[in-house]
Nucleic acid binder design. Structure first.
Lengths: 214, 214
DNA sequence: GTCTATAAGCGGATAGAC
DNA sequence: GTCTATCCGCTTATAGAC
């Protein structure tokens, strides 16, 4: 799969990936034709097969690439040695920020799971599990220290990830809220959902405004 | 669209709906052919057109029907005159219970939005907004009374719905947890996310077990 | 209301010239 | 590495017999 970076071929492959990602996100894998992808890149359909073996191979490439990038980015962003509450907040903010700037890839990775052939599905699913395990680790740690009031770590992890990933279905960079504001809202909610009362931010509203700066 | 109930035609139409729903959920609208649906019902492809004008018409029928049933069911289940916290808990439990028994319809209604033709999309989107407005109403009421510590009602509503609907992606009736248990977990989380500290259930774990019955 | 047959076209993928 | 041309199966939808 790897090719000499900088070669013309690798550049074209990148263009194909981008065009396919955008088209898959907009219309769905099954509804997008190879001719359509090729036209977007300025090629004939046959030329795509110099870069990807099949249409399925493009999908696999996009989804595996997305998951690997996600896991690697979290490994870089992960705070080491932090308390569970701080680690959870870091995870929440990372997840929202990372996903918001990759709406197409998130959408495709979620919606097109069923269009992956079995072997490819297993590969992607294993990566998804690896990522989810990062959150489960934080939750387990916080339960042990008594920071989190939770019973069922796997279910809580899925619930939090579903909530956070939902942002990508409505977020627009031109929208009413900035990513930082959205992070704040979801951080308060996700921390609250594991039993941590919010002591800043939103609570000010409830206490009838203490005239503090945001 | 309406036909005499009890007629052979209506029965066939119901079979077609069921077959299409199952196939769309499993493989996706674009990947399912009319022949495939027909075969599942024991018909030839042409016969489907006695019941639905187009393939798109089947999808529209399924999605509009799902949303209308959802709204109607909530109108029946909705507690009138309850406090916001009780109303929110009722909504959470209703949403999970209703959706868990309709995994295919939920999946299709979420995943196939982009395969709706514009006019059909607007129709379904309007129904989705009507349902979401029910939750927004509860949240707005609870913010006014001070029961909920939230700032942004629309965002909180979307976050809660995303979390709750996520259940359908992993719930299996043969799984480890019953629906009642799942309801309990998500109720604690969703109430916590709007700033209501959990005083029962999960908190017992944290307080090192008071030897009370579950 | 269902059947068979067919229209008219698009799908993924390949072959071979350049 | 890209092109043109092509294979051939499958697509939605329609027509007309029964």
């Amino acid at each position: 799969m790897a090719r000499k970076s900088g070669s013309k071929g690798e550049e074209t492959a990148r263009d194909i990936r981008l065009a396919a990602l955008s088209a898959f996100a907009r219309e769905g894998y099954a509804a997008v034709s190879m001719r359509q992808i090729a036209a977007q890149v300025g090629l004939q359909a046959g030329a795509l097969y110099n870069h990807f073996v099949t249409k399925q191979d493009i999908l696999r490439d996009l989804m595996v690439g997305h998951m690997e990038e996600l896991i690697e980015a979290w490994q870089d962003a992960e705070p080491r040695g932090a308390a569970a509450t701080a680690a959870l907040e870091a995870f929440i903010r990372f997840h929202i920020r990372h996903h918001a700037s990759r709406a197409d890839a998130v959408f495709v990775s979620y919606m097109e799971l069923r269009n992956l052939e079995p072997a490819n599905f297993r590969e992607v699913e294993a990566l998804r599990q690896r990522y989810e395990a990062c959150l489960r680790g934080i939750l387990t740690a916080g339960r042990k220290t008594g920071e989190f009031a939770i019973d069922d770590v796997p279910v809580v992890a899925m619930a939090i990830i579903a909530m956070l990933t939902g942002v990508t279905t409505w977020y627009r960079s031109s929208g009413r809220l900035s990513i930082a504001q959205i992070e704040d809202i979801y951080t308060a909610m996700a921390l609250g959902s594991v039993g941590i009362a919010n002591t800043a931010g939103q609570m000010q509203k409830r206490e009838e405004a203490c005239s503090q700066p945001a």
